[in-house]
């Protein structure tokens, strides 16, 4: 008998409620994916303000859940299990989703699973591309995370191979966008400007690619500073900033390092599947370069559609479904959100 899993996400600035159906054969079908975003409230601050995000989650939580059930044509009583993001994320934001999930689980008398947000970004791919081969490699790139992960079991065994030592890739996009006087969040406007620019116009540095650097770690802070220096020097010379070329050259540096390290990690470990997910996965150059390099290396590339890549409740429902299917024990109702939950903890 198929089971309905409700997923609740509130780790950053999106309030998400997703509903999926776990079929007997282990496949997971998306039924609803409703998101309320507070991104516009953060734009003038140039980044996510935790208190603003938390306030928005409280307002949006139940209305978002109501929309999800309406979209799916389901009743609350149809739910068989609930999954919620337990971390990592902003403490005050996580608290809202976790508290709501506990109340729903108690009222409906169904098991609750506190799950890992990062694992959710990988699990969401199964909604679009079906079961994930094991092992798989995942490149997770967003405003808060940049990680290379080895996935032996989406419901239980995920190992970090590398991560950023400073800024997340999406953070570098936001900072460079601000430098170029482009709007927040920086990903879409830089991607758009880059389409008209020359990616070879400026040779920006490729962070953490020296012979002594950690082979699978990333750094984007130096790149951001290099872009700032280049722009300031041009301003000093009284030149007009070639925004399109700067955007294209910056984007090329980011996509180059991310894809080179991901493909190298997969090749060296003999892994045949690469999943790229997280908000930055929507970047056109990252996906085109990844496709090119994966094809050359004989690696299957899976990139969920942009709507699934950004934070949402469907990814948490999808992960919850895999955790349920694996027969994992539910979380106790007194668990606390963990802002620093390691990716190795897929469910609590």
């Amino acid at each position: 008998m198929s089971r309905i899993v409700m997923g609740i996400e509130s780790s950053c600035d999106e309030t998400g409620v997703g509903l999926v159906r776990l079929h007997d054969d282990g496949t997971v079908e998306l039924l609803a994916d409703e998101v309320a975003s507070s991104v516009e409230q953060h734009a003038r601050f140039g980044g996510v303000v935790p208190e603003v995000a938390s306030r928005a989650h409280l307002e949006a939580m139940v209305p978002t859940a109501q929309r999800a059930f309406a979209t799916a044509g389901l009743e609350l009583s149809d739910v068989d299990a609930i999954a919620v993001t337990a971390g990592p994320g902003l403490a005050g934001a996580l608290l809202v989703g976790v508290s709501a999930a506990k109340a729903y689980a108690a009222a409906l008398g169904v098991p609750l699973y506190g799950v890992n947000h990062l694992a959710g970004h990988i699990a969401v791919d199964t909604l679009q591309h079906g079961p994930l081969p094991a092992p798989a490699l995942a490149l997770l790139v967003s405003g808060g995370h940049t990680q290379l992960l080895r996935v032996d079991d989406i419901a239980g065994k995920i190992t970090e191979i590398g991560s950023t030592v400073d800024d997340a890739a999406g953070e570098a996009y936001d900072k460079v966008a601000r430098l170029l006087e482009l709007p927040y969040p920086g990903g879409p406007p830089i991607d758009k400007a880059a389409k008209n620019g020359d990616p070879t116009a400026i040779a920006f540095p490729r962070g953490m690619t020296g012979p002594r650097d950690a082979r699978f770690d990333f750094s984007f802070s130096g790149l951001k500073t290099a872009v700032a220096r280049w722009v300031e020097a041009a301003q000093r010379r009284g030149e007009e900033i070639p925004v399109d070329d700067v955007a294209a050259s910056f984007q090329e540096a980011v996509a180059d390092v991310l894809t080179a390290k991901a493909v190298r990690a997969a090749t060296e470990s003999g892994i045949g599947t690469l999943v790229i997910s997280g908000g930055v996965a929507a970047n056109s150059r990252l996906s085109s370069l990844a496709a090119e390099r994966c094809e050359a290396a004989g690696i299957e590339l899976r990139v969920p559609r942009p709507r699934l890549c950004t934070d949402n409740g469907a990814m948490i429902a999808a992960l919850g479904a895999h955790v349920v299917a694996a027969g994992c024990a539910p979380s106790s109702l007194d668990f606390s959100a963990n802002p620093a939950l390691p990716v190795s903890t897929v469910s609590l």
């Binding site: 989650h57 409280l58 608290l95 809202v96 508290s99 009222a107």
Partner: peptide, 18 residues
């Protein structure tokens, strides 16, 4: 306290589900 929201969202979710 940030916990103020824990009580309120709990009440809202219980109200919705019950």
């Amino acid at each position: 306290y940030t916990g103020l929201r824990a009580g309120m969202v709990t009440a809202a979710a219980l109200s919705h589900s019950l």
